[in-house]
Simulated scan of single mutants.
Amino acid sequence: MQFDPKQLATKEVYKLLTGSVVPRPIAWVSTLSEEGDLNLAPFSFFTVASRQPPMLCISIGPGVGEREGTVKDTLTNIRSQEEFVINIVPSALGNPMQKSSENLPSEVNEFEAANLTPIDSSIVKPKRVKESPIQMECKLNQIIQLGTDHLVIGEMVLYHIEEDYYLGNYKVDFEKLRPLGRLAGNYSESTEFFTLPR
């Protein structure tokens, strides 16, 4: 079988892509509005963009459902404040993460809605998620519009990790972290690790 994306609806192509590019890590992005409102939302179009300087990227699409055709608060806040924090989502925080993904009004604080604790960052103004064991403070490098979506590239200016999740020698304890990923509309939990023979 083969599919020509020009012959398909956007949603149909999206289903093929998100069912094939798996598992995708989740960036739990915290931002701050011009008015000082806290915002928190997950994005699974997320990866490392550069090693030196260290840069991360997330792709933010347009609003969906009842907010179809609108710009997501995360993108609006990053554009205006040029700062954000990427919090990593272990499986234990799956339900609060899911709660923060709901289409809530802009003035609603997702930290409160998901019963999470905002804590000060050291360099940027947006808050970190205290319950997340890994948080990366970022300053905006650039935003590139790609079709209907916006690729946000941020330079990581400070990395936080709970000591219990740090193995030493700059390595993360994945077995303890058990990070969540996306598989199409479902989630995956990384619990088994192995190496392949060279």
Rank of each mutant, 00 (worst) to 15 (best):
P5W: 06
K6G: 08
Q7W: 12
L8V: 11
A9K: 14
A9R: 09
K11R: 14
K11Q: 09
E12Q: 14
V13Y: 03
K15Q: 07
L16V: 15
L16A: 11
L16I: 15
V22I: 06
P25C: 10
I26R: 08
A27W: 12
L32K: 10
S33F: 00
E35I: 05
D37L: 04
D37P: 11
L38R: 10
N39D: 13
L40Q: 06
L40N: 12
S44A: 10
F46K: 15
F46C: 05
S50I: 14
R51P: 01
Q52E: 09
P54Y: 15
M55G: 09
L56S: 05
L56F: 09
L56D: 02
L56C: 13
G61A: 08
G65L: 13
R67M: 03
E68G: 07
E68F: 01
T70P: 00
T74V: 04
T76Q: 07
N77D: 03
R79Q: 08
Q81R: 13
E82F: 13
E83T: 04
F84D: 00
F84N: 00
V89G: 10
V89H: 03
P90G: 05
L93R: 02
G94Y: 03
P96M: 04
M97P: 04
M97S: 07
Q98N: 09
S101W: 01
S101Y: 03
S101N: 12
E102M: 13
L104E: 04
L104M: 13
E107M: 06
A113C: 03
N115R: 14
P118V: 14
S121V: 04
S121Y: 07
S122G: 12
I123S: 06
V124C: 06
V124P: 02
V124Y: 03
K125E: 11
R128W: 00
K130H: 03
S132Q: 05
M136T: 02
C138Q: 05
K139Y: 01
N141A: 04
N141P: 00
N141H: 12
Q142S: 15
I143W: 08
I143D: 02
I144S: 04
Q145A: 12
L146G: 01
G147A: 15
G147P: 05
G147F: 12
T148F: 01
D149L: 08
E155F: 08
M156R: 11
V157W: 09
L158K: 15
Y159M: 03
D164Y: 00
Y165D: 04
Y166T: 07
Y166N: 15
G168C: 09
N169G: 07
Y170G: 04
K171I: 00
K171S: 08
F174Y: 11
K176D: 10
K176W: 00
L183P: 02
L183D: 14
L183H: 08
A184C: 08
A184E: 09
A184W: 11
N186D: 10
N186P: 05
S188I: 04
E192F: 00
E192K: 10
E192Y: 03
F193Y: 14
L196Y: 05
L196D: 05
P197Y: 01
P197T: 11
P197K: 11
P197R: 10
